[in-house]
Design a binder for these strands. Structure first.
Length: 409
DNA sequence: TCTGGGGTCCTAGGACCC
DNA sequence: TCTGGGGTCCTAGGACCC
């Protein structure tokens, strides 16, 4: 029998902002941007939640619900920094740690009783240690599976610790809404409601063959989850098995929709650079480049192209992205544009000598650029965008291939 | 309600191969 | 020419999570 903790930070972004600006304490706070901006709420303080404000709500709507809230811009670097601090505390507590997102983690503490005492005592120690070392409130769920631990920490909020004893999983889950199961969203919830299933207990009472017939593979996993099991996919994997990312992407929503080619091109160039940089950071190469377009009416399209040769070079990403864009853009104003790298590999694969030489030259230059950006800031160097003037010829002579013969500056 | 940005996983059709 | 059955890769879209 395993013992797993799920640690979830309470109103994480808001709590971090309050460390930097204590005047925000005790007030309704909305993190995400100015209320007149395009965007959604990233996090809302408990005081703001009382007015119906919650994450993913459009900022304008949040403002209507709670005009007296303080609206602040998010600071991703601060959140990453504090996420690392939390990680360090957890690491010290147990070697089997896995950050599930920026503000939540699983740790396995099976067999640490001699060190930390029984589960509930251990969790309280950890709970207090996180608070004292980071200044942040958190909640901890304790259970025999990741699934129940996660649902448990949610029930423990705010600032609580809750333990579901082994064997009591079904009883704990039964009265909860099906929506509490991670993976059951709006759509699945509605489908389940149509079948008269509202509580997890209703789900547990069903024949799993019925669910499989109705929902396929997902139905089978659902049947297991209703019983508190880590059924299917990611939940099933051991805590702490580090995994490389499967895709890297960046996207941008314009303040105002645009049909300006120059603006669209420089945005795609910037996004390509950001994706390329992250690929190099992870020492990964992409074989499939995808763009995403969203028009004013919110209709959204993706178009992908797979390369013969995996890459991590900004200009290759840009060439492919821009070509996909030109082939698919209707000419109507664009709301959002994105660049996505999938099919990630650890090597670039087979190359011929000549191509290899070009690639090496670019990689070397870009590594230097990455270092400059580390030192002088993200906007200090822009390689792809600076090629804008020469870009048209480049596309014709070398549609989706490697960089041209000229040396990068 | 006027809807961000970064991800994961699943489905489904068509190409292509044996 | 009426026409099988897998397996795998590619592409597009969608549900869902934080």
């Amino acid at each position: 029998m395993k013992t797993i903790f799920h640690i979830d930070m309470d109103a994480f972004f808001v709590s971090v902002e309050r460390l930097f600006d204590p005047t925000l304490i005790g007030k309704p706070v909305v993190v995400g941007g100015r209320p007149d901006q395009r965007g959604v709420v990233s996090a809302a303080s408990y005081e703001a939640r009382k007015f119906g404000v919650h994450s993913a709500l459009p900022l304008r709507t949040a403002y209507k619900l709670c005009p007296h809230a303080t609206f602040v811009d998010g600071h991703p670097h601060r959140y990453r920094e504090y996420s690392h601090k939390v990680h360090d505390v957890l690491q010290e507590f147990s070697p089997k740690v896995e950050m599930a997102s920026i503000d939540e983690a699983y740790i396995e503490v099976t067999g640490t009783e001699r060190l930390h005492g029984p589960p509930l005592k251990a969790a309280h120690t950890l709970h207090e240690r996180i608070r004292s070392k980071t200044g942040l409130a958190n909640s901890i769920g304790i259970a025999s599976s990741r699934l129940v631990a996660k649902i448990c920490s949610d029930q423990a909020k705010p600032n609580g610790v809750l333990w579901v004893l082994p064997g009591q999983e079904g009883r704990f889950l039964a009265p909860l809404d099906v929506r509490k199961i991670p993976g059951v969203g709006k759509v699945t919830e509605k489908q389940l409601h149509l079948l008269g299933i509202r509580k997890i207990g209703d789900l547990a009472a069903l024949d799993e063959r019925f669910l499989e017939q109705r929902f396929g593979k997902w139905g089978l996993a659902l049947a297991g989850k209703a019983l508190g099991l880590d059924a299917g996919g990611w939940f099933d994997s051991p805590v702490g098995a580090h995994e490389e990312p499967k895709s890297i992407s960046h996207e941008h929503t314009f303040g105002t929709d645009t049909a300006d080619r120059g603006q669209l091109h420089s945005t795609i160039a910037r996004l390509s650079e950001m994706v390329g940089r992250r690929l190099r950071e992870h020492k990964l190469f992409t074989r499939t480049v995808q763009i995403k377009l969203r028009y004013s009416d919110f209709s959204t399209f993706t178009r992908a192209h797979s390369l013969d040769q995996a890459t991590q070079i900004d200009t290759v990403l840009l060439n492919v992205s821009w070509k996909l864009f030109e082939q698919n853009w209707t000419g109507k104003p664009i709301r959002l544009i994105g660049v996505h790298a999938g099919n990630l590999e650890e090597t670039e694969g087979q190359t011929n000598l000549l191509a290899q030489e070009h690639t090496d030259r670019w990689t070397k230059a870009l590594t230097t650029v990455d270092k400059l950006r580390d030192k002088f800031g993200e906007n200090s160097v822009s390689l792809a965008a600076s090629l804008k003037g020469r870009f048209r010829e480049r596309v014709h002579e070398n549609p989706v291939g490697l960089p041209g013969k000229s040396k990068p500056k």
